[in-house]
């Protein structure tokens, strides 16, 4: 068996390799219409009640990224997928796979952090599972969460509602989680002062739902960052999107890490941000509603939905130039110099 026949890290990443894995190995075998959209959460209707349902696995290395440790991330990741689907997140499950010999107090810290995040997000952790595997059979602790939430009457979000002239809004500076992971891994040398943006986005999505029909679609730009989120949003649509690079908020330390690594901050994961498409008239009220919240103070309009090129994203740079955005095959790696 050659290396090409094996599962690579990129198959679980945010690039095209991961997308082709979903198309070739997942979609061909699991044919539920609820899965077909491959959206943040599956939308289900059970006896007149609309539910959002999602799950996520967390194998983050290192497990103690400042501001985004494994426990907090596991809860926020699932809560946020529900929230951006338009749901009120309610219940979360938590399953643990722990390596034999892992520190009990370390595990306690992970669980404590998960509990605090759940409380902050207003969800209850209601079921779970614990498995311990032999030393060396897992790396520390892996977490899996699943969650359900209720989608209220009148909430109707989808990429099919996106129209030319709509605006793309982000709720705050992008790339914070990805930069914190890069810094914490130590691959770029000793770095301090970069914390993950990991947080529940429920307050932000609740504020945006107040826009009613002016809110078209929401997503959380996790793996692959804002650019991947934008590309996925308009993929297959009859409209495209422009992103005005100078308008995208990026914090100084994040820009510095990205400059060193040769990685675009717009392609780094956020774990506490919302990217929302709103009607032209909804942009002002959306910014106002978001900026009233501590977590939304950095909200900005960063792009616009355009007629051409259909299904594509165009990045407009400060230099007055523009280019079509093409997602990389695999997650970007820090470059040599």
């Amino acid at each position: 068996m050659s290396g090409r026949d094996r599962v690579r890290l990129g198959h679980g990443g945010g690039g095209r390799l991961a997308r082709s894995f979903l198309e070739n190995e997942i979609r061909t075998r699991f044919r539920s219409p609820a899965l077909a959209a491959l959206d943040d959460a599956a939308l289900l209707e059970i006896e007149g009640v609309r539910l959002a349902f999602t799950t996520d696995g967390f194998v983050v290395k290192p497990p103690d990224v400042p501001g985004g440790d494994a426990g907090k991330l596991a809860v926020c990741g699932t809560v946020n997928d529900l929230a951006v689907s338009g749901a009120r997140p309610l219940y979360v499950s938590l399953a643990l796979i722990v390596e034999e010999g892992f520190s009990m107090s370390g595990l306690g810290d992970v669980l404590e952090s998960a509990a605090r995040a759940a409380e902050r997000a207003g969800v209850q952790i209601v079921c779970g599972d614990t498995k311990v595997v032999g030393r060396g059979e897992a790396d520390g602790v892996f977490l899996t969460t699943a969650g359900i939430g209720v989608v209220d009457h009148g909430v109707s979000l989808g990429t099919d509602r996106i129209e030319a002239g709509d605006r793309l809004i982000v709720s705050g500076a992008v790339g914070g989680h990805g930069a914190a992971v890069l810094a914490a891994r130590g691959e770029l040398g000793e770095m301090t002062g970069i914390a993950s943006d990991c947080a529940p986005v429920t307050d932000l999505t609740t504020a945006l739902r107040g826009l009613g029909r002016d809110l078209r679609y929401m997503t959380d730009p996790t793996r692959g960052g804002l650019l991947s989120a934008a590309v996925e949003m308009v993929s297959g649509l009859g409209v495209g999107m422009t992103i005005d690079e100078p308008s995208v908020p990026v914090e100084g330390p994040v820009a510095a890490v990205c400059g060193l690594a040769g990685i675009d901050p717009l392609m780094l994961a956020c774990e506490g941000r919302v990217a929302a498409v709103v009607s032209p008239g909804g942009a002002g009220p959306a910014l106002e509603a978001l900026r009233k919240l501590e977590a939304g103070r950095g909200a900005a309009v960063v792009g616009e939905v355009v007629g051409e090129p259909a299904g594509r994203v165009v990045m407009c740079m400060a230099a007055g130039t523009s280019r079509l955005v093409v997602l990389p095959e695999e997650d970007p790696l820090p470059r040599i110099c």
């Binding site: 290396g3 090409r4 094996r6 599962v7 690579r8 790696l333 470059r335 040599i336």
Partner: peptide, 21 residues
């Protein structure tokens, strides 16, 4: 090594495929 070196193939696979093995 550096991130962008791991995917470079030699005559017998890359460091990335070696890692997968």
């Amino acid at each position: 090594t550096f991130g962008d070196m791991v995917r470079v193939p030699g005559g017998d696979g890359s460091l990335e495929t070696a890692r997968a093995e």
